[in-house]
Design a protein around this nucleic acid. Structure first.
Lengths: 195, 195
DNA sequence: GTCTATATCATGATAGAC
DNA sequence: GTCTATCATGATATAGAC
């Protein structure tokens, strides 16, 4: 389509990006259409032309954020190295810790959780992440790199939970230090199960 | 004071309790004075007579919730048993998993994090919890129950993060199962360091 | 202490001109 | 596609009667 070449940043595009930022910063409940329009430099009419309303626009934004998180995680998890090394790389990956997780934070939004369509991308993303990590743990068990007796899905859930909870600790204390502590604690426990 | 005997549930009291419920359910941004008044069965005038406004009332509610969480945790952590047993008891403690943590969820509220006074009780509670757990880990190290090489503060942070992140997983999936998985994963890793 | 106005601005959207 | 009304309702209070 010609439109592909027209603009690197269409109005629709700017609306989605503005919504992504605001959802990350203030959540769904705390993000108003007006704020979105101002951030996107678009009028009321534009927003309601491209989207049926706030939920519709939020859905587009959440889907893109979820896809991006997934791609970023895959980049680290699909890299080189042993199972432990890849999990470590994921946990130590650079993050904007004090901003929190743009996907995980949505679980604290009552209106997101209550809406099956809005919750779906959140659920699917975290579900995929746990599954991806579980597969890596299983690899480690199969190769003998990790000592037996661990359930891959449980370890995977603990890894994801540590990250998500690490954000909570960091935002509570106003410092990324507690996030790092939690991650190092989990890595210390996990590393003692490597050969 | 005579007033102590007057009513088991004064208006002020009902306002605080209603606010606690709503903050837990919908967060600070999602909780309106009007909703609080309705839930408490109090009029506008009453609320603004007892409190200067929404932040003031929220502060009273948050402080009480924080105190309650602390008391509940202390009940488990101060119990009988080995270090591992007490940490296990804390992690396996019954929880209303799908509702999330009434204290931790506030860290996702931009207006709470931005206000030093509102954030303080949240910070102090999680800080206390990490410290309390770190002390127990230290006990375990001292007694030889836990193998050396672990840093108490890191393990404590991982424990708290797993719980907080477990809530995220559970709310995303709409089921407590993922919370339980994460907890069991962490316990499996920790138990392999006990003698 | 509680109640009922009243006030101001924001929310979330619709209508219709351009 | 974008813009400017317009609208009904809610958010967050203040004022003053009772």
């Amino acid at each position: 389509m010609y439109s592909r070449l027209m603009s690197a940043s269409s109005t629709s595009e700017r609306l989605i990006e503005a919504t992504r930022e605001l959802l990350w910063e203030r959540g769904y409940v705390g993000t108003s259409p007006k704020a979105i329009q101002q951030a996107a430099g678009a009028g009321q009419g534009s927003m309601y032309h491209h989207f049926t309303g706030k939920p519709d626009l939020a859905l587009a934004a959440i889907r893109r954020t979820a896809e991006e998180l997934r791609a970023g995680a895959e980049k680290v998890l699909g890299g080189e190295g042993s199972a432990y090394a890849r999990i470590e790389a994921y946990l130590l990956r650079e993050r904007d810790v004090l901003r929190g997780c743009p996907v995980g934070r949505l679980t604290m939004d009552p209106d997101v959780v209550a809406d099956a369509e809005l919750r779906a991308p959140v659920d699917e993303t975290l579900d995929w992440l746990r599954g991806r990590l579980a597969g890596i743990v299983q690899e480690g068990l199969d190769s003998g790199e990790l000592a037996g007796g661990l359930r891959p899905e449980e370890v995977a859930a603990a890894v994801v939970a540590t990250v998500q909870g690490g954000y909570v600790l960091a935002r509570a204390s106003g410092s990324p230090a507690t996030f790092d502590q939690a991650v190092r604690g989990l890595l210390a426990l996990l590393s003692s199960r490597t050969r």
